[in-house]
Design a protein around this nucleic acid. Structure first.
Lengths: 247, 247
DNA sequence: GCGGCGACCGTACAGTGTGCGGAGTAGCGA
DNA sequence: TCGCTACTCCGCACACTGTACGGTCGCCGC
């Protein structure tokens, strides 16, 4: 008596479908599926099992294409750097507008993918992803063509990118927190503000600051202005230094 | 026949020790134990169970003092902010040296506790910890007493802290990566550099940069100089803006 | 044809955060 | 002095994690 007559899976009843009727897994597919999952549900929801089912694959099937979960995250982070538009950044554009445009690109990338704030800490900036390299090269180029020495260009790049990463990862972390809480921005602000006002008692300057911010309340625009203001301030400092180097 | 005669735990054989022979758990104890654990073994090693055993407590005993693991991390992060020395920051000190000193304090705190790079993303800056508030108030104060308006002071605080957080969390992430790998800094550099050199082919400016850095190699001092240079650049920009506001 | 290689997957293991209910104790009002 | 309540602490359980391991199977070079 054969096994399939007992309803058990056997060589005969088994589907026998080829490995080829599903398109084979590829690194790019894995990375972009992970990116979708991260955007949709945040970093806590990224598990190898969930990623597997999303790809019609087993839980451990990704490990032939990717060494670790950490390595996967590195790849996805670099993918975000890859989204930044570098076209139209050449020697004809004024260096300040070029740097500003790159800075905005980086910041917008972070805001589009707020989970990146959590990912950055796990990965380190030492990741030599091709897209990050491309971005660095472009930024260096902008400074050099504006007349900065290579060392000064590096200094400028480091300063600007540190600033942008500081601002953007902070904003992204807040955004991610908000998304995790499941509340709308409106609800969150309404719940957050009284707490903040309470906490700020006993710190006179912070209290004045909060009081001043209650009126004249336009989150997005003022945030953007503040970012540009800080960036402009850095660029001013850099420009003064270049003139110093020239003289 | 009673249970203890069968070797089972019972009322009679049970140790019966009072809850008081171990000093009771407290929030501060938990936080400082977590800090020790994080410093010793990094963020991946921080689990509630390990923390419990370190405190001679059960796995879930901390939950009466702390809501979440996330909340615990918020508390520990604020503890790090609390380590920053604010003494000697008053109206008599020049604002630039005051800001610089605070910036160094923050950066050193991050470098002392490299796991913080991972923790920051999970927490968001919206954490209204008392120590962060104290630090913000102090920084605001420095700017205000230097003659900045409240809005300008906020702008200055945001710009400087974004820069410092960007630099320091990047450095800290690298440090944490290094610690996790278990290698010495020397080993790591030796293993990392050829890879970087390889990766940098095809990016002429980056290649020149790496070539230039191979000679004149003094990691710590140049890093510190670069940090101060960027900071000074920001302060220059801010100062120019203040003059503008005055005129 | 066939041997090896590499992609894919099922299973398993050690570990995670934390909800729940029970136990024991301190403090407090009567 | 006696309850009663509130609170701290803990053992257990549950769902879920990353990933090591070994097996199976299609494909490619010999």
């Amino acid at each position: 008596m054969s096994a399939d007559q007992q309803g058990l899976p056997s060589v005969w009843t088994r589907p026998q479908r080829s490995r080829r009727d599903q398109p084979a897994l590829s690194r790019d597919q894995i990375v972009s599926a992970a990116l979708e999952l991260l955007d949709a549900e945040g970093i806590d929801a990224l598990s190898m099992r969930k990623l597997g089912t999303r790809l019609n694959a087993g839980a451990t099937s990704m490990y032939s294409h990717v060494a670790n979960k950490d390595e996967l995250i590195e790849l996805v982070v670099d993918e975000v750097y890859g989204e930044i538009d570098l076209t139209g950044i050449d020697s004809s554009t004024d260096w300040r507008t070029a740097v500003t445009r790159l800075a905005h690109g980086l910041r917008n990338g972070f805001l589009r993918h707020p989970w990146i704030a959590s990912a950055l800490g796990q990965v380190g900036m030492a990741a030599l992803g091709p897209n990050l390299l491309r971005l660095s090269e472009a930024l260096l180029g902008v400074f050099e063509e504006a007349g900065y020495s290579l060392q000064a260009a590096e200094q400028g790049m480091n300063t600007v990118s540190a600033y942008v990463i500081g601002v953007a990862s902070t904003e992204a972390a807040t955004l991610a927190l908000l998304a995790r809480s499941g509340q709308s921005q409106q609800e969150w602000v309404e719940r957050f503000w009284p707490v903040a006002e309470q906490a700020v008692q006993g710190y006179p300057r912070l209290r004045r600051l909060y009081a001043a911010q209650r009126e004249g309340f336009d989150v997005d625009s003022t945030r953007g202005d503040s970012f540009d203001e800080g960036l402009a301030c850095i660029l001013d400092g850099l420009e003064a230094r270049r003139r110093l180097g020239d003289g």
